[in-house]
């Protein structure tokens, strides 16, 4: 249902100690945030990409698709960094003057954008390495070792369990609406979307009621052991 999650449980590196995977990914991630030469970003990306595709066995087609996910943001922000404003035209490689203000591109802007592009790619490959090879079960062990408060880990464990239930339900409700022409026009789409969230929320509340009963029959004493 969630592709990243699916691979986390089925990849070839899943049996490796999660702390090792976490430390390695975080180490590379932090290394990539340091002001290192540009070529090193490429190096990090290649290493992480290789480990993810070759060692963990994530199909390259889906991996490339996943890498595209954060790119909307990247494109938007690179545009805004590459274009500069100024009152004098000297620093620009290329500029146009609008009402006395220069709008253009500077060499530093290009360098900055390039750095950002490469750095983000490197970091994303690190994050993907971690999330694609470490199932949530194992991640929890890491967070326990990191001394994250118990209350937070408990919530994570429970939320993770319920996510899949509600995702499935939301999909089913949406399909049923679609079959009855709920998403024809923009206005109808908004209306149907509101209805879907209402139905989903009612189900959340019903589930809470039923699960409390189930908890009671399992001697729940206020603590979810993790």
């Amino acid at each position: 249902m969630l592709l990243i999650d699916k691979y986390a449980y089925t990849n070839k590196l899943r049996k490796i100690n999660p702390m090792v995977k976490f430390s390695f990914a975080m180490g590379m991630l932090i290394f990539s945030l340091l002001p290192i030469p540009l070529w090193l970003y490429g190096g990090v990306s290649l290493i992480m990409g290789y480990l993810t595709v070759k060692s963990a066995g994530i199909p390259i087609k889906n991996y490339s698709k996943m890498l595209m996910i954060p790119f909307t943001f990247l494109v938007l922000s690179v545009i805004s960094i590459i274009i500069s404003f100024g009152e004098s035209g000297e620093v620009f490689m290329w500029a146009t003057k609008v009402r006395g203000i220069y709008i253009g591109i500077t060499p530093q802007g290009i360098e900055m954008s390039l750095r950002l592009l490469l750095r983000s790619t490197a970091c994303i490959t690190c994050m993907y390495f971690y999330s694609l090879t470490t199932p949530l079960d194992q991640q929890i062990q890491v967070y326990k070792k990191l001394r994250i408060p118990k209350e937070i880990i408990e919530l994570m464990v429970l939320i993770y369990r319920f996510i899949f239930i509600f995702l499935e339900e939301a999909k089913e409700i949406r399909n049923a609406q679609e079959m009855r022409f709920g998403y024809n026009t923009f206005k109808q789409s908004c209306h149907s979307f509101s209805l879907m969230i209402k139905v989903l929320f009612i189900r959340v509340m019903q589930r809470n009621k039923d699960m409390q009963i189930s908890l009671e029959s399992k001697f729940f004493n206020g603590e979810f052991h993790i």
Partner: peptide
């Protein structure tokens, strides 16, 4: 789905 609280099978069976 209303009586399984953990996504880990062992933890869930051990819960009670």
């Amino acid at each position: 789905d209303k009586q399984i609280f953990y996504s880990n099978v062992f933890d869930d069976v051990a819960f009670a």
